[in-house]
Design a protein around this nucleic acid. Structure first.
Lengths: 146, 146
DNA sequence: ACATGTTGTGTGTATATGCACTACTACGAC
DNA sequence: GTCGTAGTAGTGCATATACACACAACATGT
């Protein structure tokens, strides 16, 4: 049987459905990661910082697809907890963002929890289907950013 | 060429990718809807209220897949602006949530903006793929809620 | 009548998100 | 040199999110 949804019907709002699923998935990852004192969003930021020596604000926000001013605020708990160091910055000045040693340790100790969540989520549809979905969603998101 | 992603690699975190795409899609819908003074999340809530005469808090949060305490707060701007009426409520008492006449009018005047955004987003991948993706994502989200 | 468990609602605190706006720097045109 | 413009970073305000907790009403067993 086909699973066609009527995309002109309000109940099938792409935005609402994506937000709904994202809430559920985020809660699932969060449940695995919270005992390390790190949220999924923060984990993504740390992982990016861990993959390249130095970033400035605009570069990193671009990479993460996160609004620049959102990133400014999302970095604060990570700076407060000593996972990220920001040198320079202030109005008009470039800031140099780097992950600290403590931050790298956090990424490492976090990895098993992330893997557990990721693997459980991937199992729901299988790797192939998830790969196709993420690839399609990336296509859609990039098309909207034009 | 195949588009297989390595789902064990950190860059392909399902949570991060869903959050990223959802941010982009939400911004897109929001750009269409904001001139009506309504955000996408609020629109979803109003549309639900519009589809059934009376809800209480737990029912509606369940229907929306939105944490109950999140819904309590998300309703506030809608009550403040006179789109939703809450009768009863308070600690321990059931609340009866209903959309007002003003709320119904808002839903109607909002519909063209929603349709414009929905249609533009659907065009990025085509109706068929979006239907399949939403259907799969629903399967995944339900599996995680077990 | 009373204890108790279940259901239903709201608050405290913290993070996540983004538009409009401010403010400073750097650099090129002149 | 200075003037304008593009680039970069941060703030004000409002919404969105959810866990831990508090509290009230109700059913039910004793």
């Amino acid at each position: 049987m086909s699973k066609q949804l009527d995309m002109a019907a309000g109940e099938n709002c792409v935005c609402f459905n994506l937000r709904w699923v994202t809430r559920a998935v985020t809660q699932f990852y969060d449940a695995e990661m919270r005992r390390h004192g790190i949220r999924p969003t923060q984990g993504s930021i740390l992982a990016s910082l861990n993959s390249k020596d130095s970033w400035n604000m605009a570069e990193l926000s671009d990479w993460l697809g996160m609004e620049r001013t959102t990133l400014v605020r999302n970095l604060r708990p990570l700076q407060r907890d000593g996972f990220v160091k920001a040198v320079g910055g202030g109005r008009g000045n470039r800031v140099e963002l780097t992950i600290t040693t403590k931050g790298r340790k956090q990424v490492e100790s976090l990895t098993p929890a992330w893997k557990a969540a990721q693997s459980a989520v991937v199992k729901t549809l299988g790797e192939k289907r998830w790969s196709a979905i993420l690839s399609d969603l990336e296509t859609a998101a990039l098309a909207l950013n034009k």
